[in-house]
Design a protein around this nucleic acid. Sequence first.
RNA 1: GGAGAAGUCGCGUAGCUGGUCGAGCGCGCACGAUUGGAAAUCGUGUAACCUGUAAAAGGGUUCGAGAGUUCGAAUCUCUCCUUCUCCGCCA
Length: 429
Amino acid sequence: MLDIKLIRENTEDVIARLAAKGKEARSEVERIVELDAQRRAMISENEAKKAEQNKVNKDIPRLKKEGADVAPVFAKMKELAADIKANDARIAEIETEYNELMLGLPNLPDTDLKPGGKENNEPIRYFGEPHIFDFEPKNHVDICTDLGLIDYKRGTKLSGNGFWIYRGMGARLEWALLNYFIDTHLADGYELVLVPHMLGYECGQTAGQFPKFKDEVYWLERDKEDERRLFMLPTAETALVSLHRDEILTEADLPRKYISYTPCFRREAGSYRADERGMVRGHQFNKVEMVQYTKPEDSDAAFEELVGKAEALVKGLGFHFRTVKLAAADCSASMARTYDVEIHIPSMDGYKEVSSVSNARDYQARRGSIRFKRDGSNKTEFVHTLNGSGLATSRILPALVEQNQNADGSVNVPDVLRKYLGVDVLRRD
RNA sequence: GGAGAAGUCGCGUAGCUGGUCGAGCGCGCACGAUUGGAAAUCGUGUAACCUGUAAAAGGGUUCGAGAGUUCGAAUCUCUCCUUCUCCGCCA
Protein backbone atom coordinates (compact mmCIF):
# COMPACT_ATOMS: atom_id res chain seq x y z
CA MET A 1 0.00 0.00 0.00
CA LEU A 2 1.23 3.46 -0.79
CA ASP A 3 1.35 6.36 1.64
CA ILE A 4 -1.82 8.40 1.21
CA LYS A 5 0.09 11.53 2.18
CA LEU A 6 2.46 10.95 -0.69
CA ILE A 7 -0.45 10.46 -3.08
CA ARG A 8 -2.18 13.55 -1.78
CA GLU A 9 0.83 15.80 -1.95
CA ASN A 10 2.61 14.42 -5.02
CA THR A 11 -0.25 13.12 -7.09
CA GLU A 12 1.37 13.68 -10.48
CA ASP A 13 4.66 12.21 -9.38
CA VAL A 14 2.93 9.06 -8.12
CA ILE A 15 1.04 8.69 -11.39
CA ALA A 16 4.27 9.10 -13.37
CA ARG A 17 6.15 6.52 -11.32
CA LEU A 18 3.31 4.02 -11.61
CA ALA A 19 3.35 4.65 -15.36
CA ALA A 20 7.03 3.68 -15.39
CA LYS A 21 5.88 0.41 -13.93
CA GLY A 22 3.45 -0.03 -16.76
CA LYS A 23 0.42 0.89 -14.68
CA GLU A 24 -1.82 3.56 -16.10
CA ALA A 25 -3.33 4.67 -12.83
CA ARG A 26 -4.51 8.21 -13.36
CA SER A 27 -8.18 7.52 -12.90
CA GLU A 28 -7.65 5.36 -9.81
CA VAL A 29 -5.27 7.80 -8.18
CA GLU A 30 -7.50 10.77 -8.84
CA ARG A 31 -10.47 8.89 -7.47
CA ILE A 32 -8.44 8.02 -4.38
CA VAL A 33 -7.58 11.66 -3.79
CA GLU A 34 -11.24 12.54 -4.15
CA LEU A 35 -12.42 9.82 -1.79
CA ASP A 36 -9.74 10.75 0.71
CA ALA A 37 -10.95 14.34 0.79
CA GLN A 38 -14.56 13.25 1.13
CA ARG A 39 -13.70 10.84 3.85
CA ARG A 40 -11.81 13.34 5.92
CA ALA A 41 -14.49 15.99 5.54
CA MET A 42 -17.18 13.57 6.64
CA ILE A 43 -15.11 12.35 9.56
CA SER A 44 -14.57 15.87 10.84
CA GLU A 45 -18.25 16.61 10.57
CA ASN A 46 -19.31 13.40 12.25
CA GLU A 47 -16.76 13.63 14.99
CA ALA A 48 -18.10 17.01 15.99
CA LYS A 49 -21.48 15.35 16.38
CA LYS A 50 -20.02 12.54 18.40
CA ALA A 51 -18.30 15.04 20.64
CA GLU A 52 -21.64 16.72 21.22
CA GLN A 53 -23.22 13.35 21.95
CA ASN A 54 -20.52 12.47 24.46
CA LYS A 55 -20.87 15.80 26.18
CA VAL A 56 -24.62 15.54 26.63
CA ASN A 57 -24.41 11.94 27.72
CA LYS A 58 -22.01 12.90 30.44
CA ASP A 59 -24.53 15.40 31.79
CA ILE A 60 -27.47 13.03 31.91
CA PRO A 61 -26.70 11.43 35.27
CA ARG A 62 -26.41 14.89 36.80
CA LEU A 63 -29.68 16.10 35.25
CA LYS A 64 -31.42 12.98 36.50
CA LYS A 65 -30.12 13.53 39.97
CA GLU A 66 -31.43 17.06 39.93
CA GLY A 67 -34.81 15.71 38.96
CA ALA A 68 -34.91 17.55 35.65
CA ASP A 69 -37.10 16.28 32.83
CA VAL A 70 -34.76 14.39 30.54
CA ALA A 71 -37.34 13.26 28.00
CA PRO A 72 -36.75 16.18 25.58
CA VAL A 73 -33.00 15.63 25.81
CA PHE A 74 -33.49 11.95 25.01
CA ALA A 75 -35.59 12.81 22.00
CA LYS A 76 -32.96 15.16 20.68
CA MET A 77 -30.19 12.67 21.33
CA LYS A 78 -32.07 9.95 19.55
CA GLU A 79 -32.13 12.09 16.44
CA LEU A 80 -28.45 12.87 16.77
CA ALA A 81 -27.62 9.19 17.21
CA ALA A 82 -29.53 8.28 14.07
CA ASP A 83 -27.76 11.03 12.19
CA ILE A 84 -24.36 9.79 13.34
CA LYS A 85 -25.20 6.25 12.40
CA ALA A 86 -26.17 7.27 8.90
CA ASN A 87 -22.95 9.20 8.49
CA ASP A 88 -20.90 6.30 9.77
CA ALA A 89 -22.52 4.06 7.20
CA ARG A 90 -21.68 6.53 4.44
CA ILE A 91 -18.09 6.81 5.66
CA ALA A 92 -17.82 3.04 5.68
CA GLU A 93 -18.96 2.97 2.07
CA ILE A 94 -16.37 5.54 1.10
CA GLU A 95 -13.68 3.63 2.95
CA THR A 96 -14.61 0.38 1.26
CA GLU A 97 -14.12 1.91 -2.18
CA TYR A 98 -11.02 3.76 -1.01
CA ASN A 99 -9.41 0.64 0.43
CA GLU A 100 -10.17 -1.39 -2.64
CA LEU A 101 -8.43 1.16 -4.84
CA MET A 102 -5.51 1.58 -2.45
CA LEU A 103 -4.95 -2.17 -2.23
CA GLY A 104 -5.05 -2.37 -6.00
CA LEU A 105 -2.21 0.08 -6.58
CA PRO A 106 1.19 -1.51 -7.10
CA ASN A 107 4.32 -0.33 -5.35
CA LEU A 108 6.32 2.56 -6.73
CA PRO A 109 9.47 1.45 -8.53
CA ASP A 110 12.78 2.83 -7.31
CA THR A 111 13.77 5.89 -9.29
CA ASP A 112 17.01 4.40 -10.62
CA LEU A 113 15.20 1.62 -12.50
CA LYS A 114 14.77 1.76 -16.23
CA PRO A 115 11.13 2.17 -17.15
CA GLY A 116 9.37 -0.43 -19.26
CA GLY A 117 9.35 -4.21 -19.25
CA LYS A 118 11.62 -7.21 -19.78
CA GLU A 119 13.28 -5.71 -22.85
CA ASN A 120 14.91 -3.14 -20.60
CA ASN A 121 16.23 -5.60 -18.07
CA GLU A 122 19.90 -5.05 -17.58
CA PRO A 123 22.43 -7.80 -16.78
CA ILE A 124 24.76 -6.23 -14.24
CA ARG A 125 27.24 -9.07 -13.80
CA TYR A 126 28.17 -12.50 -15.08
CA PHE A 127 29.86 -15.36 -13.33
CA GLY A 128 31.68 -18.14 -15.13
CA GLU A 129 31.32 -19.18 -18.75
CA PRO A 130 28.63 -21.12 -20.59
CA HIS A 131 29.43 -24.79 -20.63
CA ILE A 132 30.89 -26.07 -23.88
CA PHE A 133 30.19 -29.72 -24.69
CA ASP A 134 32.33 -31.89 -26.94
CA PHE A 135 29.37 -34.16 -27.50
CA GLU A 136 25.70 -33.70 -28.22
CA PRO A 137 24.23 -32.81 -24.82
CA LYS A 138 20.86 -34.19 -23.76
CA ASN A 139 18.12 -32.07 -22.27
CA HIS A 140 17.20 -32.47 -18.60
CA VAL A 141 13.98 -34.34 -19.28
CA ASP A 142 15.87 -37.08 -21.07
CA ILE A 143 18.68 -37.17 -18.54
CA CYS A 144 16.33 -37.33 -15.57
CA THR A 145 14.25 -40.01 -17.22
CA ASP A 146 17.23 -42.09 -18.30
CA LEU A 147 18.82 -41.94 -14.86
CA GLY A 148 15.53 -42.59 -13.11
CA LEU A 149 15.70 -39.32 -11.19
CA ILE A 150 12.30 -37.99 -12.18
CA ASP A 151 9.12 -39.88 -13.04
CA TYR A 152 7.23 -37.47 -15.25
CA LYS A 153 4.73 -40.01 -16.49
CA ARG A 154 3.50 -41.13 -13.14
CA GLY A 155 3.49 -37.56 -11.87
CA THR A 156 0.96 -36.80 -14.55
CA LYS A 157 -0.93 -39.97 -13.74
CA LEU A 158 -1.29 -38.94 -10.12
CA SER A 159 -2.07 -35.25 -10.50
CA GLY A 160 -2.20 -34.22 -14.13
CA ASN A 161 -0.12 -31.91 -16.24
CA GLY A 162 2.49 -29.88 -14.39
CA PHE A 163 3.40 -32.42 -11.74
CA TRP A 164 6.34 -34.78 -11.47
CA ILE A 165 7.77 -37.24 -9.00
CA TYR A 166 11.30 -37.26 -7.67
CA ARG A 167 12.55 -40.80 -7.26
CA GLY A 168 15.52 -42.51 -5.75
CA MET A 169 18.68 -40.51 -6.31
CA GLY A 170 16.53 -37.78 -7.88
CA ALA A 171 14.65 -37.33 -4.64
CA ARG A 172 17.91 -37.45 -2.73
CA LEU A 173 19.46 -34.90 -5.05
CA GLU A 174 16.50 -32.59 -4.48
CA TRP A 175 16.82 -33.07 -0.74
CA ALA A 176 20.57 -32.50 -0.89
CA LEU A 177 20.03 -29.18 -2.63
CA LEU A 178 17.57 -28.08 0.04
CA ASN A 179 19.98 -29.15 2.76
CA TYR A 180 22.82 -27.26 1.13
CA PHE A 181 20.72 -24.10 0.95
CA ILE A 182 19.46 -24.36 4.50
CA ASP A 183 22.86 -25.15 6.00
CA THR A 184 24.35 -22.16 4.23
CA HIS A 185 21.64 -19.84 5.52
CA LEU A 186 21.96 -21.16 9.05
CA ALA A 187 25.66 -20.43 8.95
CA ASP A 188 24.75 -16.86 7.98
CA GLY A 189 22.60 -16.50 11.07
CA TYR A 190 19.14 -16.84 9.58
CA GLU A 191 16.34 -18.42 11.59
CA LEU A 192 14.71 -21.46 10.03
CA VAL A 193 10.93 -21.26 10.18
CA LEU A 194 8.53 -23.98 9.10
CA VAL A 195 5.18 -22.43 8.29
CA PRO A 196 1.71 -23.72 7.47
CA HIS A 197 1.25 -24.48 3.81
CA MET A 198 -2.34 -23.33 3.90
CA LEU A 199 -2.86 -19.67 4.65
CA GLY A 200 -5.68 -17.24 5.34
CA TYR A 201 -6.66 -14.38 3.07
CA GLU A 202 -4.85 -11.72 5.09
CA CYS A 203 -1.51 -13.31 4.32
CA GLY A 204 -2.09 -12.89 0.63
CA GLN A 205 -3.27 -9.36 1.09
CA THR A 206 -0.26 -8.36 3.16
CA ALA A 207 2.23 -9.83 0.74
CA GLY A 208 0.43 -8.04 -2.09
CA GLN A 209 -0.84 -11.03 -4.03
CA PHE A 210 -4.44 -10.12 -3.25
CA PRO A 211 -6.79 -8.77 -4.33
CA LYS A 212 -5.29 -8.69 -7.82
CA PHE A 213 -3.85 -12.16 -8.17
CA LYS A 214 -6.50 -14.14 -6.34
CA ASP A 215 -6.89 -16.46 -9.31
CA GLU A 216 -3.25 -17.49 -9.38
CA VAL A 217 -3.36 -19.53 -6.19
CA TYR A 218 -5.20 -22.70 -5.25
CA TRP A 219 -8.13 -22.14 -2.94
CA LEU A 220 -9.42 -24.79 -0.60
CA GLU A 221 -13.15 -25.14 -0.28
CA ARG A 222 -14.45 -24.75 3.24
CA ASP A 223 -18.15 -24.43 3.86
CA LYS A 224 -19.56 -21.56 1.90
CA GLU A 225 -17.86 -18.74 3.64
CA ASP A 226 -15.36 -17.30 1.24
CA GLU A 227 -13.45 -15.07 3.61
CA ARG A 228 -12.39 -17.97 5.76
CA ARG A 229 -11.17 -20.10 2.91
CA LEU A 230 -7.55 -21.02 2.96
CA PHE A 231 -5.21 -21.10 0.01
CA MET A 232 -2.11 -23.12 -0.74
CA LEU A 233 0.87 -20.82 -0.44
CA PRO A 234 2.49 -19.79 -3.73
CA THR A 235 5.75 -19.01 -1.91
CA ALA A 236 6.90 -19.00 1.70
CA GLU A 237 7.23 -15.24 1.42
CA THR A 238 3.46 -15.05 1.74
CA ALA A 239 3.68 -16.65 5.16
CA LEU A 240 6.91 -15.07 6.39
CA VAL A 241 5.80 -11.54 5.62
CA SER A 242 2.72 -12.07 7.78
CA LEU A 243 4.74 -13.38 10.69
CA HIS A 244 4.88 -9.93 12.25
CA ARG A 245 1.64 -8.60 10.82
CA ASP A 246 -0.11 -6.20 13.21
CA GLU A 247 2.92 -6.07 15.45
CA ILE A 248 5.10 -3.27 16.74
CA LEU A 249 8.70 -4.42 16.94
CA THR A 250 11.43 -2.75 18.90
CA GLU A 251 14.53 -1.35 17.29
CA ALA A 252 16.50 -4.20 18.83
CA ASP A 253 14.25 -6.73 17.07
CA LEU A 254 15.56 -5.55 13.71
CA PRO A 255 16.79 -6.85 11.43
CA ARG A 256 14.85 -10.11 11.48
CA LYS A 257 16.30 -12.69 9.11
CA TYR A 258 14.20 -15.71 8.27
CA ILE A 259 14.37 -18.65 5.92
CA SER A 260 11.73 -21.19 5.26
CA TYR A 261 11.46 -24.29 3.15
CA THR A 262 8.07 -25.00 1.61
CA PRO A 263 6.62 -26.49 -1.48
CA CYS A 264 5.09 -23.71 -3.57
CA PHE A 265 1.76 -24.12 -5.31
CA ARG A 266 0.82 -22.12 -8.38
CA ARG A 267 -1.91 -22.45 -10.94
CA GLU A 268 0.23 -21.09 -13.78
CA ALA A 269 -2.92 -21.04 -15.83
CA GLY A 270 -2.24 -20.84 -19.52
CA SER A 271 1.44 -20.17 -19.18
CA TYR A 272 2.76 -23.32 -20.81
CA ARG A 273 5.17 -23.00 -23.63
CA ALA A 274 7.08 -25.66 -25.44
CA ASP A 275 10.43 -24.51 -24.06
CA GLU A 276 9.23 -24.87 -20.50
CA ARG A 277 8.71 -28.56 -20.54
CA GLY A 278 9.89 -30.74 -17.76
CA MET A 279 10.46 -29.11 -14.45
CA VAL A 280 10.93 -25.52 -15.35
CA ARG A 281 7.35 -24.61 -14.67
CA GLY A 282 5.01 -26.77 -12.63
CA HIS A 283 2.13 -26.42 -10.23
CA GLN A 284 4.25 -27.50 -7.29
CA PHE A 285 7.92 -26.92 -6.69
CA ASN A 286 10.31 -26.73 -3.76
CA LYS A 287 11.90 -23.55 -2.61
CA VAL A 288 13.86 -22.15 0.28
CA GLU A 289 12.84 -18.55 0.78
CA MET A 290 14.68 -15.75 2.55
CA VAL A 291 12.84 -12.84 4.17
CA GLN A 292 14.19 -9.87 6.06
CA TYR A 293 12.50 -7.17 8.11
CA THR A 294 14.69 -4.10 8.45
CA LYS A 295 14.71 -0.47 9.45
CA PRO A 296 14.09 1.73 6.40
CA GLU A 297 17.67 2.99 6.25
CA ASP A 298 19.03 -0.57 6.30
CA SER A 299 17.02 -2.10 3.51
CA ASP A 300 19.41 -1.25 0.68
CA ALA A 301 22.25 -3.04 2.44
CA ALA A 302 19.95 -5.97 3.24
CA PHE A 303 18.99 -6.15 -0.42
CA GLU A 304 22.62 -6.45 -1.46
CA GLU A 305 23.12 -9.08 1.21
CA LEU A 306 20.25 -11.17 -0.14
CA VAL A 307 21.44 -10.86 -3.73
CA GLY A 308 24.90 -11.85 -2.58
CA LYS A 309 23.54 -14.89 -0.79
CA ALA A 310 21.57 -16.09 -3.78
CA GLU A 311 24.62 -15.65 -5.99
CA ALA A 312 26.84 -17.46 -3.53
CA LEU A 313 24.57 -20.50 -3.54
CA VAL A 314 24.64 -20.70 -7.32
CA LYS A 315 28.39 -20.10 -7.35
CA GLY A 316 28.83 -22.86 -4.82
CA LEU A 317 27.23 -25.28 -7.24
CA GLY A 318 29.67 -24.18 -9.90
CA PHE A 319 27.16 -22.71 -12.30
CA HIS A 320 27.54 -20.07 -14.90
CA PHE A 321 24.99 -17.37 -14.14
CA ARG A 322 24.19 -13.74 -14.53
CA THR A 323 22.50 -11.22 -12.29
CA VAL A 324 19.90 -9.02 -13.90
CA LYS A 325 18.49 -5.76 -12.68
CA LEU A 326 14.85 -5.75 -13.66
CA ALA A 327 13.23 -2.81 -15.39
CA ALA A 328 10.40 -1.14 -13.52
CA ALA A 329 7.52 -2.91 -15.23
CA ASP A 330 9.09 -6.35 -14.85
CA CYS A 331 9.22 -6.10 -11.07
CA SER A 332 6.21 -7.67 -9.44
CA ALA A 333 3.44 -5.44 -8.16
CA SER A 334 4.57 -5.30 -4.54
CA MET A 335 8.21 -4.61 -5.21
CA ALA A 336 10.21 -1.42 -5.53
CA ARG A 337 13.21 -3.21 -7.02
CA THR A 338 14.12 -6.72 -8.05
CA TYR A 339 17.30 -8.47 -9.18
CA ASP A 340 17.06 -11.90 -10.74
CA VAL A 341 19.80 -14.49 -10.68
CA GLU A 342 19.54 -16.40 -13.92
CA ILE A 343 21.34 -19.57 -14.78
CA HIS A 344 22.19 -21.03 -18.11
CA ILE A 345 20.21 -24.06 -19.18
CA PRO A 346 21.96 -25.50 -22.25
CA SER A 347 18.91 -27.20 -23.75
CA MET A 348 17.01 -23.96 -23.73
CA ASP A 349 19.97 -22.01 -24.92
CA GLY A 350 19.06 -19.32 -22.51
CA TYR A 351 18.99 -18.06 -18.98
CA LYS A 352 16.28 -19.03 -16.53
CA GLU A 353 15.51 -17.33 -13.25
CA VAL A 354 16.55 -19.34 -10.19
CA SER A 355 16.30 -16.54 -7.70
CA SER A 356 14.43 -13.32 -7.53
CA VAL A 357 15.44 -10.90 -4.80
CA SER A 358 13.23 -7.93 -4.06
CA ASN A 359 12.86 -4.97 -1.79
CA ALA A 360 9.23 -4.11 -1.02
CA ARG A 361 10.30 -1.12 1.09
CA ASP A 362 7.29 -0.21 3.25
CA TYR A 363 4.64 -1.43 0.80
CA GLN A 364 3.95 -4.76 2.47
CA ALA A 365 4.49 -3.28 5.94
CA ARG A 366 1.70 -0.80 5.29
CA ARG A 367 -0.64 -3.51 4.04
CA GLY A 368 0.05 -5.66 7.07
CA SER A 369 0.63 -2.89 9.60
CA ILE A 370 4.13 -4.05 10.52
CA ARG A 371 5.79 -1.33 12.53
CA PHE A 372 8.65 -0.68 14.88
CA LYS A 373 9.65 1.90 17.46
CA ARG A 374 13.12 3.35 17.72
CA ASP A 375 14.79 3.35 21.11
CA GLY A 376 13.67 6.31 23.14
CA SER A 377 10.90 7.23 20.73
CA ASN A 378 7.24 6.45 20.95
CA LYS A 379 6.54 7.10 17.33
CA THR A 380 5.83 4.04 15.23
CA GLU A 381 7.34 3.64 11.79
CA PHE A 382 6.81 1.03 9.12
CA VAL A 383 9.55 -1.52 8.64
CA HIS A 384 10.92 -2.50 5.27
CA THR A 385 10.45 -6.06 4.05
CA LEU A 386 12.63 -7.90 1.58
CA ASN A 387 12.54 -11.35 0.16
CA GLY A 388 14.52 -13.57 -2.12
CA SER A 389 14.56 -17.15 -3.24
CA GLY A 390 17.48 -18.97 -1.87
CA LEU A 391 16.81 -21.00 -3.98
CA ALA A 392 14.11 -22.72 -5.98
CA THR A 393 15.20 -26.23 -6.84
CA SER A 394 12.96 -26.78 -9.83
CA ARG A 395 15.23 -24.78 -12.10
CA ILE A 396 18.45 -25.71 -10.36
CA LEU A 397 18.07 -29.44 -10.83
CA PRO A 398 17.53 -29.22 -14.62
CA ALA A 399 20.50 -26.90 -14.96
CA LEU A 400 22.57 -29.13 -12.75
CA VAL A 401 21.99 -32.28 -14.73
CA GLU A 402 22.40 -30.53 -18.06
CA GLN A 403 25.55 -28.62 -17.20
CA ASN A 404 27.17 -31.56 -15.41
CA GLN A 405 26.34 -34.32 -17.87
CA ASN A 406 29.00 -36.55 -19.33
CA ALA A 407 29.15 -38.18 -22.74
CA ASP A 408 28.24 -41.55 -21.22
CA GLY A 409 24.98 -40.14 -19.83
CA SER A 410 26.14 -39.89 -16.24
CA VAL A 411 26.03 -36.67 -14.23
CA ASN A 412 28.72 -35.30 -11.93
CA VAL A 413 27.57 -34.28 -8.48
CA PRO A 414 28.81 -30.83 -7.44
CA ASP A 415 31.29 -30.91 -4.57
CA VAL A 416 29.01 -29.17 -2.11
CA LEU A 417 26.33 -31.85 -2.49
CA ARG A 418 28.56 -34.92 -2.20
CA LYS A 419 28.40 -35.08 1.57
CA TYR A 420 24.61 -35.22 1.39
CA LEU A 421 24.40 -37.72 -1.46
CA GLY A 422 27.33 -39.96 -0.70
CA VAL A 423 28.27 -40.32 -4.36
CA ASP A 424 30.33 -38.29 -6.85
CA VAL A 425 28.53 -39.36 -10.00
CA LEU A 426 24.94 -40.25 -10.81
CA ARG A 427 24.73 -43.20 -13.19
CA ARG A 428 22.12 -45.47 -14.59
CA ASP A 429 21.60 -48.45 -12.25
C1' G B 1 -16.78 -33.76 16.07
C1' G B 2 -19.60 -33.49 21.39
C1' A B 3 -19.87 -30.93 26.53
C1' G B 4 -18.28 -26.97 29.70
C1' A B 5 -15.29 -22.35 31.04
C1' A B 6 -13.02 -18.04 29.43
C1' G B 7 -11.23 -13.84 26.20
C1' U B 8 -10.06 -6.30 29.63
C1' C B 9 -4.04 -1.42 28.59
C1' G B 10 3.47 -5.45 27.61
C1' C B 11 2.21 -9.44 31.59
C1' G B 12 -1.23 -10.77 35.82
C1' U B 13 -5.81 -9.18 37.41
C1' A B 14 -10.36 -5.66 39.17
C1' G B 15 -14.75 -3.98 36.92
C1' C B 16 -19.77 -7.26 34.20
C1' U B 17 -27.20 -4.98 39.47
C1' G B 18 -25.52 -0.22 31.94
C1' G B 19 -23.75 6.41 32.95
C1' U B 20 -17.56 11.07 35.94
C1' C B 21 -14.38 3.51 32.94
C1' G B 22 -10.02 4.38 27.90
C1' A B 23 -10.76 1.76 32.27
C1' G B 24 -8.54 0.63 39.15
C1' C B 25 -4.53 -2.35 41.35
C1' G B 26 0.08 -5.29 41.06
C1' C B 27 4.27 -6.51 38.03
C1' G B 28 7.20 -4.84 34.14
C1' C B 29 9.28 -0.65 31.62
C1' A B 30 11.02 4.76 31.19
C1' C B 31 12.49 9.19 33.54
C1' G B 32 13.56 11.82 38.10
C1' A B 33 14.88 12.04 43.48
C1' U B 34 17.93 9.58 47.02
C1' U B 35 23.36 7.12 46.77
C1' G B 36 30.44 7.34 46.25
C1' G B 37 28.00 3.53 43.04
C1' A B 38 24.18 -0.04 43.34
C1' A B 39 20.02 -2.51 45.75
C1' A B 40 15.91 -0.92 48.34
C1' U B 41 12.67 3.27 48.72
C1' C B 42 9.85 7.52 47.01
C1' G B 43 7.83 10.51 42.91
C1' U B 44 6.23 11.00 37.81
C1' G B 45 4.98 8.75 33.45
C1' U B 46 3.61 4.39 30.65
C1' A B 47 -1.47 1.96 24.21
C1' A B 48 -2.74 1.98 19.15
C1' C B 49 -5.27 4.06 15.23
C1' C B 50 -8.07 8.10 12.78
C1' U B 51 -8.76 13.36 12.46
C1' G B 52 -6.44 17.96 13.13
C1' U B 53 -1.77 21.19 13.01
C1' A B 54 4.05 24.14 10.55
C1' A B 55 4.36 21.59 15.14
C1' A B 56 0.90 21.53 19.08
C1' A B 57 -3.66 21.90 21.44
C1' G B 58 -8.27 19.81 20.61
C1' G B 59 -11.69 15.95 18.86
C1' G B 60 -12.95 10.77 17.61
C1' U B 61 -12.45 5.27 17.77
C1' U B 62 -10.83 0.86 20.12
C1' C B 63 -12.12 -3.64 26.68
C1' G B 64 -11.38 -10.99 20.95
C1' A B 65 -14.36 -9.59 15.99
C1' G B 66 -19.01 -8.16 13.98
C1' A B 67 -24.18 -6.90 14.61
C1' G B 68 -28.21 -5.41 17.95
C1' U B 69 -30.92 -3.09 22.36
C1' U B 70 -30.38 2.02 24.62
C1' C B 71 -30.20 8.97 25.10
C1' G B 72 -25.74 6.11 26.77
C1' A B 73 -22.40 -0.69 26.77
C1' A B 74 -16.19 -3.36 29.00
C1' U B 75 -20.93 -4.19 31.43
C1' C B 76 -27.43 -6.65 28.38
C1' U B 77 -28.75 -9.81 23.55
C1' C B 78 -27.21 -12.49 19.03
C1' U B 79 -23.52 -14.45 15.51
C1' C B 80 -18.57 -15.61 14.66
C1' C B 81 -13.35 -16.34 16.07
C1' U B 82 -9.74 -17.91 19.57
C1' U B 83 -7.92 -20.24 24.06
C1' C B 84 -8.39 -23.73 28.16
C1' U B 85 -10.65 -28.35 30.49
C1' C B 86 -13.23 -33.08 29.73
C1' C B 87 -14.91 -36.81 25.99
C1' G B 88 -14.30 -38.91 21.07
C1' C B 89 -10.47 -39.52 17.17
C1' C B 90 -5.88 -39.91 15.93
C1' A B 91 0.29 -38.57 13.68
